[in-house]
Design a protein around this nucleic acid. Structure first.
Lengths: 223, 223
DNA sequence: CGGCCTATTGAAGTGAGTCAAGGCCAGTGG
DNA sequence: CCACTGGCCTTGACTCACTTCAATAGGCCG
């Protein structure tokens, strides 16, 4: 069982300059709020904290994760530009969130979404939540039943889709993050990537940028 | 990689006697609909079918699952008496559902829930969906980062809680179902259970009924 | 009693983990 | 300008938890 040496950076936000409220409307859910800049590896919110705000990624990326008492970490999802996160069933967060890189977010009060008054807003929120559920169940399928190479392949395909990258993939996360997302160790992720490179499916160009040379074959590998 | 020899029973519902609509209101969400009896291992709905109905378990239990192209199966969740399932993001099911044992369900049209008109109903539905998301993320943590014995222990603890059983646990599912839920093989589940019995944490009394002798120690084992 | 299905147990194999060494930057400071 | 440092990442050798394959044992129902 792998023990990812997790880093739990203490709450130490980059001073958020009090900018004029801006809106983001990239893909359906409009958030009116304040811009927040979060430095790499800084916490956005922690498990157990009150969940009265929602966030939308403008630039950068965020990991949402849970940890076991002994430090093993499972990343539940990555949030990429356009994604909304931080909505919880109860009044407190049941997962933590940290910036993968220097990240710009829009923050709004949960109550400002108007989910109770505006049926359109409610519907959009509903769509978001159900999409998350879908993703989480896909993730469970991967974690429960796929081999290491299938996991890595499907991760690459998924990321390419979500980042809108057709061939050249710029990953915002480290090998450790990928490992903790896929339920593997960092060594296995690394080995699998070089294997994929050897078999000609991808080309590693610097450890965070990957060229998908045979996206079709890669997709087939996902089973 | 394990190849669970999945059985995909063909749609062959037990004739659903056209009974008078009844209501179920065990835990918040009221469903007004028709009773449906589904025999053991029969399909309730399949992946790709239109998702215009929702279901509530009255008696028995249901497995919700997805399968990979080569037959590997991952059970996403078990639905126990009182649970509502079948609500999907889009208009078609992205998972399949089958009865674990002879099961009685209440079926209602999705549209009859009044989620668009009744804010209270909408809120209850919301709560349901978010609870599912929560469970799914817990599940991902288990599948990604826990060892076999931790998985089995947490499964037992979870089942005991959900079934309202304090000590004597009557499982509605087979070893194969447990294995496909926990991302293990049937043999590993079996071995782990006997191991737990040897260490005095549980007592197996017939393969579907388990006596939790040290629930506290069992919970500690979950990490 | 006998057949069938599911669960258990054993022995052997393997995919991924662990441990450890080395490589590759990027940033720093002499 | 380049050695020095620290953080990832990669690679290799070895180990082990879980799987695989195979045989046996229980239960349930005719």
């Amino acid at each position: 069982m792998q023990m990812s040496p997790i880093m739990v950076p203490r709450r130490l936000y980059q001073a958020a300059p009090p900018v004029a409220p801006r809106t983001a409307d990239t893909d359906g859910v409009r958030l009116i709020g304040v811009t927040l800049t979060v430095a790499r590896d800084q916490e956005v919110f922690g498990e157990g904290e009150p969940a009265d705000q929602v966030y939308k990624v403008v630039r950068g990326a965020v990991r949402g994760f849970r940890v076991l008492s002994d430090g093993r970490r499972q990343i539940c999802d990555f949030y990429l530009p356009g994604d909304v996160f931080g909505i919880e069933p109860g009044c407190e967060h049941r997962a933590s969130a940290e910036a993968l890189t220097d990240t710009v977010l829009i923050v709004a009060r949960r109550s400002s979404l108007g989910e109770d008054t505006d049926p359109t807003a409610a519907r959009r929120l509903w769509g978001l939540a159900m999409a998350d559920l879908q993703r989480s169940q896909d993730h469970a399928l991967t974690l429960g039943r796929r081999s290491a190479s299938e996991r890595v392949a499907s991760f690459l395909v998924d990321m390419a889709n979500r980042l809108g990258a057709s061939e050249m993939l710029e990953l915002p996360m480290s090998r450790q993050d990928i490992a903790d997302y896929l339920g593997l160790t960092i060594e296995t992720v690394s080995r699998t990537l070089t294997q994929l490179q050897v078999s000609g499916l991808i080309k590693l160009a610097g450890c965070r940028s990957i060229h998908l040379r045979k996206p079709r074959a890669l997709a087939d590998l996902c089973a």
